[in-house]
Design a protein around this nucleic acid. Structure first.
Lengths: 246, 246
DNA sequence: AAGTGGTCTAGACCACTTC
DNA sequence: AAGTGGTCTAGACCACTTC
């Protein structure tokens, strides 16, 4: 691990165990340089990392302050206990890994085919008129409770050898571990929509119930889009957490 | 403007006008150093900024590549034209400023009072049992079309002098321009919920229609929470854009 | 082996706040 | 005036890919 990541982790521990209370100031950048025996650039990267994680806020001329977040005072989320979180701090690392610690993940595959995608999807995946895609539709469940229907397209050429048993398990694990691809970023559009009759049946809810829709394009570190997906998450069982720095 | 921001802007222009096509590689870091006459750290900060903006992706040992995004090829969003976006790239800069370029923003104030907030809200705002808050509820409209109902609490002590005419206009402008506060970050939880009968009436939709709920805590650069709000956005008129780097 | 991005140093200077 | 974070230099070394 890099020095700045270790320093960030160390400061984070000091915040979480209360050694630096919410509202209090961190040691100055120069003090942290001396404390950890590193240069200023390294301390700055550590502090930036903490700011991205939502723990601190820096004010030029004044100092870096621990944010008074509910987490730092042990307050639970409003729906804690009855909400299955899609992801902490809005990092998409795939459904299986997100929920792995929460229970048993399973999938019902409604469709798994190779086809020429609709023009709008082809445009998003940077494909020509005649390029083929995998197209799969699946319901994902946690401990038997349906959470989300995912409708996914992936270019055939980028993802060779995808089989039905990958779709029944974790596609992302296949991409990373078997193909050695590096998933770099996701562009998302989030909406609230009403469940159709078919979706309601698959998700064990009522028609018209609110769903959290995520329209998403995933990119590799080569800049190539490897996935276009529209997922519809049961509103009462899902929430998306984000941290926004201005 | 800082050097790295100028360099990022310049590279961004090269990408957007097609001088560097999607999928192509940027000049190497060393080449960019020579091109702009700056050191490596400055080029790296510029490239990191472009990565945060979703334009490029870097691969160690290989290069930095322009992402093949729909935007870089002139493809419109799926619902472009009939969706009012909450914010580009998920940066909360306040409703008025977000929509200022799109039309005329107005507000209907349902409640504006000073009260002791519920315990859960007090906990989120880092307040004691007896501390007072402003509490306002308002519907916000764009060109007369209702978009969202905002239910907001703000600590009395942090926001002195708030009046009804500020609530009818832009609260954020009052915080920034009149009080000189620096809004630093927002922690959000996004959900899909169904409209109640009262909400449906205020938003000119049907009861049970899907709403995009944003539960949000806003922080100043001092680390103090200045706002707790739950906003409910009409599903068919709202979308939230995010970019996630892994 | 050569080329690429990622981290780091030990300083310097600047913008902003008043610890 | 003194203290704070933010930017920047001119290098160095390292991790990773193969341009």
């Amino acid at each position: 691990m890099s020095k700045y990541a270790e320093i960030a982790q160390d400061i984070r521990a000091s915040i979480e165990d209360g050694a630096i209370a919410p509202g209090e100031r961190l040691p100055t950048v120069v003090e942290l340089c001396e404390l950890y025996g590193v240069s200023k650039v390294t301390v700055r990267k550590a502090v930036e990392l903490l700011a991205e994680q939502g723990l601190v806020s820096s004010r030029r001329g004044s100092g870096t302050f621990v944010k008074a977040t509910p987490e730092s005072k042990g307050v639970d989320g409003r729906h804690a206990g009855d909400t299955l979180y899609i992801g902490r701090t809005d990092r998409s690392i795939g459904f299986t890994n997100e929920h792995a610690h929460q229970g048993e993940v399973s999938s019902v595959v409604h469709l798994f085919a190779i086809e020429v995608p609709p023009a709008e999807v082809a445009a998003r995946l940077d494909l020509g008129d005649e390029d083929f895609c995998y197209h799969d539709v699946r319901t994902r469940l946690l401990d038997g409770v349906p959470l989300v229907i995912e409708d996914t397209y992936m270019p055939l050429e980028l993802v060779p050898g995808l089989k039905r048993h990958h779709v029944e398990g974790s596609i992302y694990n296949y991409l990373r571990q078997d193909l050695g691809l590096h998933l770099a970023s996701f562009h998302r559009i989030v909406r609230a929509v009403a469940a159709t009759a078919e979706e309601a049946g698959r998700l064990d809810i009522a028609e018209g119930d609110p769903l959290l829709e995520l329209e998403q394009i995933g990119f590799l570190d080569s800049g190539a889009p490897f996935e276009y997906s529209v997922s519809r998450n049961v509103g009462s069982r899902s929430a998306l957490h984000t941290i926004n720095i201005t």
